[in-house]
Nucleic acid binder design. Structure first.
Lengths: 241, 241
DNA sequence: ACCTGAACACCGTTCAAGT
DNA sequence: ACCTGAACACCGTTCAAGT
């Protein structure tokens, strides 16, 4: 038998594909991602991708997971980003060396996590509809759910409540990263007939402050959410004794 | 010239198309909606649709708007569903005849609206990713934004705050209707290695209580949100004098 | 005005073939 | 093991043609 010169370095691997997919989505939107287009971007023929991923959806899953892997979880006493997070560290990992949310500082942990979570998604807005719809079975998503649940239980929340907190925070953050509220209004004053929409007279001004409005609403909502949970926490604690 | 027998009733109109599109999405998911498939469902040839809508996206816009048109707005003193809402009335329009959220009962109005909003989206979960991403320029969405803004301003919120409340409620409701939290976990106890996910030991149980968990998290979050806003409202009112 | 068939430039995925 | 070209069954949309 002749020896084959075959092991001449594969052109593709899963990381390279997921990375290129995310870059393409960031640049041109979810709809621009086709397997053929992605393959071309990687200098390869369309069907080649199927040697590394079973379906296009699996490629999207991998891309989405790299986004969630960027969320800072250190405030829950976790061990930084997991094994799949690659070279770059977490984002927004301010404050002291990961001491965890012991005692009563779960509201601060929730606040910091919520901001980091939103920032990670806002960096890649076009993949959020896919990311938010999907089942969340992806490793980084599970790691996040694990850290939040553990952090809330450690802080004194009953397990059933800790689960709900993880869920409701996910609702709010994905919802806020998904669609712009302010961006839903057009910058033309004549667009909103007072007869149809009596209170929308100033709505056209929102278009010019898109990011401010959306960030302000996010911050207001996040604080309200945490304040409201703190109220319920008090009720639980006093009922305890 | 001979007289032509042309006006023999058009086979299609915008309402019929939007209705059929929504039915198809409800039954088989967003991905199942293709112009060709939809046309076949309507007993017509593919390109026919383009006599009534400019693009497939415009069809989706119309379908999405019929969903939002089902949301009850009577708690804001509005005049029921708008002109585009069709024959069926609003949903969850309980309580007394639309007297509006005068005085200090804005928290009740927000609570009732939030529930009706979520219920409307939960009736058509497959269209939510599209609905939430889109710009919200659709008539029913504008009518809703107008009613909420007006209701909050009438109740005593400063306009900038009223805008944020509309936005943050939209974030939370669309996020909660978009993806199931509990559905993100698989019903298999062996799926979550304790070495990777130390706190997810009971997570597999969530899969069996999908709707309960998601609804419970929504209710907890909605109450927390409104309680937190009430706290801020107090601060505003006392600062006023 | 409204519907049709043919056509264009795309899709995701499979598969036999090459190395 | 990994990549290729050809092929299959689809897409959204345009357009000339019919009534």
């Amino acid at each position: 038998m002749c020896r084959m010169a075959r092991p001449r370095k594969p052109l593709l691997n899963r990381d390279r594909i997921a990375q290129a997919a995310l870059a393409l989505i960031d640049a041109e939107g979810l709809a621009a991602l086709s397997t053929r287009r992605l393959a071309a971007e990687l200098g390869v023929s369309g069907p080649s991708l199927y040697n590394h991923f079973a379906t296009k959806e699996a490629i999207l899953d991998a891309a989405a997971d790299t986004v969630v892997a960027q969320v800072d979880l250190s405030m829950f006493g976790g061990r930084g980003p997991g094994p799949g997070a690659g070279a770059n560290g977490t984002r927004d990992s301010g404050a002291g060396a990961g001491s965890g949310a012991s005692g009563g500082d779960w509201p601060d942990a929730l606040l910091a996590w919520g901001r980091s979570y939103r920032a990670a998604l806002a960096d890649h807005p076009h993949i959020v509809p896919f990311l938010a719809t999907g089942p969340g079975l992806r490793p980084a998503g599970l790691r996040m759910a694990d850290a939040v649940f553990g952090g809330m239980v450690d802080a004194g929340w009953p397990p059933a409540h800790a689960t709900r907190i993880g869920a409701l925070m996910r609702y709010f953050v994905t919802g806020s990263a998904l669609g712009s509220f302010a961006g839903g209004f057009v910058g033309d004053a004549a667009a909103y007939d007072p007869a149809d929409y009596p209170h929308l007279g100033q709505a056209h001004l929102l278009a010019g402050h898109r990011e401010q409005v959306d960030l302000g609403a996010f911050e207001t909502g996040l604080r309200a959410l945490i304040d409201g949970l703190a109220l319920q926490f008090q009720v639980l604690r006093t009922a305890d004794r």
